[in-house]
Simulated assay, not measured.
Amino acid sequence: MINGRSLKQHDFPVALGLTHLTTAAFLLSSGEALPSWVTSYSYFTALTCIVLCLIFKPHKGFLTGLAVAFATTVMIRAINMSLVSLHGPGVDHLLGLMGAIAGTVAALIYSKFKPSQTAEKGFVVGSIGALGGYLLSMFISCNTVIYCGPVFSWGTYP
């Protein structure tokens, strides 16, 4: 079990390990319900965010929270694609990942103004920032621009 003390010491390796292991697991099980491009886009976006966040030295636990959030976005996409047959290039997931990047930047800025954070709080801020940005972007884009399936779109298929 990962506790606060080990997370303080091993935040970056744990984040990289989670990102690589979840990507490998999803790529091995890719098929119609989850094409491999979904996992690869999430993988490269997660790696980019983790490396860029290292430059700004976030609080411990933040990077692991990002890795968990990006793994969750792939799970959400897999669930949504298994519910309905969506055709097309998957612009909805790309818009969601852009929202995750924006949420990561917002969470990073927020965490820099809170100097006394523990590793657990850093984990929560990182995961909520990225996942919240993803979900907000998906809800906005899926209800105004494109149809993303029953999970995110409130209306019926046009």
Rank of each mutant, 00 (worst) to 15 (best):
L28K: 01
T19R: 07
N80H: 01
S40Y: 03
A24G: 10
K121L: 09
L95A: 13
S127G: 06
M98Y: 08
K8L: 09
F152I: 08
P150A: 11
C142S: 14
M98H: 01
D92R: 08
S36P: 00
L136F: 15
K57F: 05
I55P: 00
H87V: 13
M138K: 11
H20W: 08
A46N: 04
Y43T: 05
L7M: 13
V68W: 02
L16R: 03
Y157Q: 15
K121Y: 09
A25C: 11
A100H: 00
V105A: 15
P158T: 12
L131F: 15
I101L: 14
T118P: 01
L27D: 02
Q9I: 03
H87A: 15
L83H: 11
F70T: 06
T104Y: 03
V125F: 08
F152R: 03
M75S: 12
G129M: 00
I128E: 12
Y41W: 05
G31T: 00
E32C: 05
K8E: 07
V124M: 10
I76R: 00
S82I: 08
L47R: 02
F152A: 14
T22V: 04
I128T: 15
K57P: 06
V84A: 14
R77L: 02
D11R: 02
T118I: 10
C49K: 04
F62E: 02
L18E: 00
S137N: 14
F12Q: 02
Y147N: 14
L21Q: 02
V14Q: 10
M75E: 05
A102G: 13
S82R: 10
G4H: 01
A100K: 04
V105T: 13
F56T: 11
P115F: 10
A33D: 07
A33F: 04
A46V: 04
H59T: 07
A78K: 13
S40R: 06
L16H: 05
P158G: 11
N80K: 01
A71V: 05
G61M: 01
L52E: 06
V74T: 15
G31Q: 06
H10W: 08
N80I: 12
T72A: 14
T64S: 13
A106W: 03
V124C: 09
A106Q: 02
N143Y: 09
G65H: 01
L66I: 02
V125D: 07
N80P: 01
I140G: 00
V124R: 09
I101V: 15
L95V: 12
H20S: 10
F44H: 07
T156I: 15
